[in-house]
Write a protein that binds this DNA or RNA. Structure first.
Length: 189
DNA sequence: CACAGGATATACT
DNA sequence: GTATATCCTGTGA
């Protein structure tokens, strides 16, 4: 598998997200296969970047190929990949992984061992991979991050995004079709 | 199934 | 300043 360079992200988030389903994400050697992603672009009322830069979302307006990590509901962390298309600040939210590397460490960090729930949800992914605000703004092609391109093209299913109230109709949740590691079933948005 | 937990942002007074 | 909403999850009913 080839390491993805950060200029891979200097394109539209929609196209990039399709190419990332099935790729492998590691943080300090711990991680797995990306099976669920959501797209947020600047023309999107549900995106943090919609109303312009703030202290929290500054990374979304920085160079593509970097991480945007934000605190969710005051408790959890959520990891995004910053993308860029002309005139936009867009990002891809990592919602679920299929655990493949360092499963023991993930179980230890999460305090739970159900493999189907280890990384099924954006907050769980960050807990299992020890992603916190200290990684906000860091490049994705340097340690502790590692992104490996997929070997073959998977079947992708699209559905509405989760946990938002605006622009719910946009089918910008991308899943690896049939994966049991999703944060929710492939149906029902 | 309902809801607490609690950072960050926005919309009000 | 207060109030309300949010890219969520574990716990207890």
């Amino acid at each position: 598998m080839a390491q993805l360079r950060r200029d891979f992200f200097a394109a539209g988030a929609h196209r990039i997200a399709e190419e990332l389903i099935g790729a492998t994400l590691l943080v300090d050697g711990v991680g797995g296969v990306l099976v669920e992603l959501e797209i947020y672009d600047q023309n999107d009322p549900a995106s943090h970047s919609y109303r312009g830069p703030t202290a929290r979302n500054a990374s979304m307006f920085g160079p593509p190929g970097h991480a945007y990590v934000y605190r969710s509901y005051g408790i959890h962390w959520c990891l995004n990949f910053v993308c860029a298309e002309p005139g936009e600040a867009s990002a891809i939210l990592v919602r679920a992984l299929e655990p493949t590397h360092g499963v023991g460490q993930m179980v230890e960090r999460r305090g739970r061992d159900n493999p189907l729930e280890l990384c099924a949800g954006p907050g769980r992914v960050c807990q299992a991979l020890a992603v916190t605000g200290r990684l906000d703004g860091l490049p994705l092609d340097r340690p502790p991050f590692e992104l490996l391109a997929r070997d073959s093209e998977p079947e992708i299913s699209r559905s509405p995004r989760i946990g938002i109230t605006r622009a719910q109709e946009r089918p910008w949740r991308l899943c690896l079709a049939g994966s049991p590691y999703l944060s929710r079933g492939p149906r029902r948005g």
